[in-house]
Nucleic acid binder design. Sequence first.
DNA 1: CAGTGGTCTAGACCACAAG
DNA 2: TTGTGGTCTAGACCACTGA
Lengths: 254, 254
Amino acid sequence: MGTTQLESVPEPKYWHLKTVIGEALDSDFAVGEILPNERDLAARFGVARATLRQALEQLELEGRLQRRRGVGTTVAPPRVGVDVSTTEHAWPGSAQDSWQSVDCTQAVPPVAVARFLDTGADEETYVVRRLRVSHGQPVAAELLYVPAASVAELSAIDTPSGPARARAVLRELQRRELDGQDRAVELGSARADDAKELDRLPGAPVLMVTTRYFSAGRTAALSVATYRADTCRLTFGDSGDVEIRHHGEERRAS
Amino acid sequence: MGTTQLESVPEPKYWHLKTVIGEALDSDFAVGEILPNERDLAARFGVARATLRQALEQLELEGRLQRRRGVGTTVAPPRVGVDVSTTEHAWPGSAQDSWQSVDCTQAVPPVAVARFLDTGADEETYVVRRLRVSHGQPVAAELLYVPAASVAELSAIDTPSGPARARAVLRELQRRELDGQDRAVELGSARADDAKELDRLPGAPVLMVTTRYFSAGRTAALSVATYRADTCRLTFGDSGDVEIRHHGEERRAS
DNA sequence: CAGTGGTCTAGACCACAAG
DNA sequence: TTGTGGTCTAGACCACTGA
């Protein structure tokens, strides 16, 4: 026989599927439109449902699809740019920073957190819970760890619990001098409580932004914020308002 | 009957598995150690292999495991901090920025890229291919789009092809005044060629860092860099050298 | 070669949302 | 109640690595 072997390294079916569906999204579907259900799609492409789902998962990871149990799969809007620039040198909670305080408790932080704060291993800190909303949708959930030493003037007795207490802690923090901050971004999966706040399933991919706030030679606070990776694009600088269209050009309803 | 229903909302098996294995990693395994193979693990936990794999995928996403076909599953080292701070206001390729130029071609960029460059839709640009290595491992692959107008003095005739040409383009770029830059981070999946450079499978999760370089009121260059999401933690500021241990404390060999 | 992870199938049942 | 996506099973074969 001839040795004309065109595809010696066949690409996986789900990878090819992802490409085909991705192109179809660009040409045949409008944002918000509902796709056929997974069983139909699998039958249409002649693959098992699990294989079809592998392709959809990739597209969801890239922010092109949105899947909701009991509802269906829809075409996702472009990712929203969320400004996380560190240039402004401000404490959390300053000047309407688009976060809303939800709660405030006292607890001993995880060891990974305690390592950054100059506290003892079993020392309690304030834990402020905040939520960030953008365009009406929750995009991030944050845990802000504040050692008692950073808000020494705060009296636990006269501050009520809940959001008011959170605001009191932030207000006290803002009275200090902010020497600098420090930011890191990495991929993670949503903890159960974060997932609930973000209207996602536990384990959903998130971008974890860790920020250290320095004051008087110490780490005065540490923020761990989890952003929805499917809907968010983190921006550093002034590009937050620029429209980015990643996949193809125009779209039309079918 | 009594209404004592302890677990009305049972968590998924793979989620529970992930927790159990994650704790075992902290207590019973050392970095680099090889786990039992998937079939053994699945049997040991009494679940199907697919379910076990779902748990391992999550742990790999969080950077705690590394899986290699034909080899096995190993405990991953802590993520390496990679500095991507934008404060230094420098062109790409300046002052040993830990990137190495691989190649340089000319091609019409994707529409999503062309939109940022002030070029025509079908206009060719230089496309510089670079690779970033850290601790001996490739951590990022970059495509740098440079419109011909940004390196006007460059003559295509007297520049050789390959890495030398890439360096020539960068050198020419650095002669211009850099007005500012602009950075965004989002989740993506690795294209086939990027995956190959990063020693990953196509579709692997990556952190996509898009940088715009401004000069003379225009976008003089646009960089799209894909960082391995499993092994990298992007840092903005001076925290790149700080050890971050996210999961548990000490570890011991078993 | 044997052993590993990667892909794929054809089912089943469950949790959830909406009519 | 119906239909959706989410979970799970018990197999099979393939691609790759290293001895």
